[in-house]
């Protein structure tokens, strides 16, 4: 049932939920980042919800908006065939979020990718280093302030 998960979340964590919406059958909850792991554990372990599958974890750079970054997680419950989107706004020059690797091992490489592309650090991640770009690469290419034509070649002319 769309919406019923959100109602349960709001009842259980009234202080951590910044907002919710349910559009076209898709549920979204916006959380305070510091509550992310707590809420995620509840969603995974609650016997009626059982969101056992982390389908995606990514981020958005809203650039001039404050807070600048937004972490996005897509969860799936195999037993209820239900989906839920979690969003957490992250601000500051060095954005940080709690790692979800202890709940879903799948979060490991997603978080490394988000770190590589956006420079968001995950507290409690076992091995937070670049996953796509090479070690010598400077900066985070999916940040909106990364120059669109800036290349950092390892060999050949430095164009």
């Amino acid at each position: 049932m769309p919406g019923s998960t959100l109602t349960r979340l709001q009842e259980s964590f009234p202080e951590a939920i910044l907002g919710t919406h349910s559009r076209l059958g898709e549920d979204t909850a916006i959380l305070k980042p510091e509550a992310l792991r707590r809420v995620a554990r509840f969603l995974k372990e609650d016997p009626r919800l059982r969101f056992d599958f982390l389908m995606d974890l990514t981020a958005v750079d809203h650039w001039k908006r404050k807070p600048r970054f937004e972490l996005v997680c897509h969860l799936y419950s195999r037993s209820n065939n239900a989906r839920l989107r979690l969003k957490a706004p992250l601000g500051g020059a060095s954005p940080e979020a709690p790692s979800l690797t202890s709940l879903w091992p799948a979060a490991d490489w997603y978080e490394r990718e988000v770190f590589d592309m956006f420079g968001i650090r995950f507290r409690g991640h076992p091995d937070l280093r670049r996953i796509l770009m090479y070690r010598e690469f400077q900066g985070h290419p999916l940040r909106k302030d990364y120059p669109i034509d800036k290349r950092q070649p390892l060999v050949g002319p430095k164009d």
């Binding site: 796509l132 770009m133 290419p141 990364y146 669109i148 034509d149 800036k150 290349r151 950092q152 070649p153 060999v155 050949g156 002319p157 164009d159």
Partner: peptide, 13 residues
């Protein structure tokens, strides 16, 4: 692929 990740022609290397 005109972006940060791609070599613009292998004749660069």
């Amino acid at each position: 692929y005109d972006n940060y990740a791609t070599v613009r022609g292998i004749d660069h290397v």
